[in-house]
């Protein structure tokens, strides 16, 4: 069993990569996937801390995160479909009608 810092380090790296995905990619679907990656890195941190402190709460949180992620994906993908229906595009840089 490795020290817990290994897992949290990996979690940081995955989180940063996910964030980079959100910031750099223009495809709404890939941005969405990057968000899922970030969620997973957080889940990894939760699980590793749960193991470290030997408490069940961390794992329960992950359970909820997965459930919420499922709901989020359902709604998020529906939104993307709806945007595509009106814009015929899922390039987030083409969607700037909220410009002030």
């Amino acid at each position: 069993m490795l020290p817990i810092e290994y897992y949290t380090g990996l979690s940081v790296i995955l989180f940063t990569l996910g964030a980079l995905g959100v910031l750099i990619r223009r495809n709404a679907l890939i941005i969405f996937m990057s968000i899922e990656l970030m969620l997973n890195s957080a889940n990894l941190a939760f699980v590793s801390f749960a193991r470290s402190y030997e408490g069940m709460s961390g794992q329960i949180f992950v359970f909820f995160v997965i459930a919420v992620a499922a709901a989020e994906v359902a709604v998020g993908l529906a939104l993307i479909v709806a945007i595509f229906h009106t814009k015929r595009n899922i390039d987030v840089d083409q969607i700037n009608s909220m410009k002030g």
Partner: peptide
């Protein structure tokens, strides 16, 4: 797989099936 290593077999299975 990391979840399995970290003693969270239930979450590991949920990760595979749900995610």
């Amino acid at each position: 797989v990391f979840y399995l290593v970290l003693d969270a077999p239930f979450l590991a299975l949920m990760q595979v099936t749900v995610y």
